[in-house]
């Protein structure tokens, strides 16, 4: 029987792939969003920064920050779940992913955000759940919280068009 791969090697391959996926998106870097990985589960983390404020008198995070954080978490979460499957099944070469050759992100078709309470000037966390991922379309739910996991401050629902399938001719560059 084949010996299992050393754990450090497995972790390094997965972390490198995740870093390549996240690092490829300038807007994710601009907002300062990071991803914490435990197995295949991702938690998005948005460390607080002064530029994220929308209402300086309260103060509260800008609604656009919350919306962006949810959308980024949903898209990266969805892309990661398919990248994970492809990596684990050996369908794509981890060395190419590490070199920055990441699959294109899904495209947002529509996005709904519920603002449950004001975003405090603190760090935010979010997790996405892929409710359905088909060949062409996917539906992702996402939840964001601050100090207390049981008290989310925003919820999102995103429908996506999967890459390489169903691209409209006008969408091609």
């Amino acid at each position: 029987m084949k010996r299992p791969e050393p754990v450090a090697q497995v972790k390094s391959r997965r972390d490198t792939a995740l870093a390549a996926l996240v690092g490829a998106v300038p807007y994710v870097q601009f907002l300062g969003i990071r991803f914490d990985r435990r197995g295949d589960e991702l938690t998005a983390w948005l460390p607080y920064a002064d530029i994220l404020i929308g209402n300086p008198t309260l103060p509260a995070l800008h609604g656009g920050v919350t919306a962006s954080f949810l959308e980024v978490t949903a898209l990266i979460g969805l892309a990661w779940s398919s990248l994970w499957d492809d990596l684990e099944a050996g369908r794509i070469d981890p060395a190419r992913v590490a070199a920055g050759e990441v699959p294109p992100l899904p495209k947002t078709i529509d996005f709904t955000v519920d603002y449950l309470r004001a975003g405090l000037p603190r760090d935010c966390y979010a997790r996405a759940r892929v409710m359905r991922s088909g060949r062409r379309f996917a539906s992702v739910q996402v939840e964001s919280w601050q100090d207390n996991r049981e008290r989310p401050f925003a919820l999102g629902s995103v429908h996506c068009l999967m890459p390489e399938a169903g691209l409209m001719p006008e969408d091609r560059a």
């Binding site: 800008h62 656009g64 920050v65 919306a67 962006s68």
Partner: peptide, 22 residues
Amino acid sequence: RLVGDPATGVLHGGAISALMDT
């Protein structure tokens, strides 16, 4: 800095959402 897809230079939907919310 607001680009979502560096291959095409298309802005990220989140930046457009932020503009629409404002």
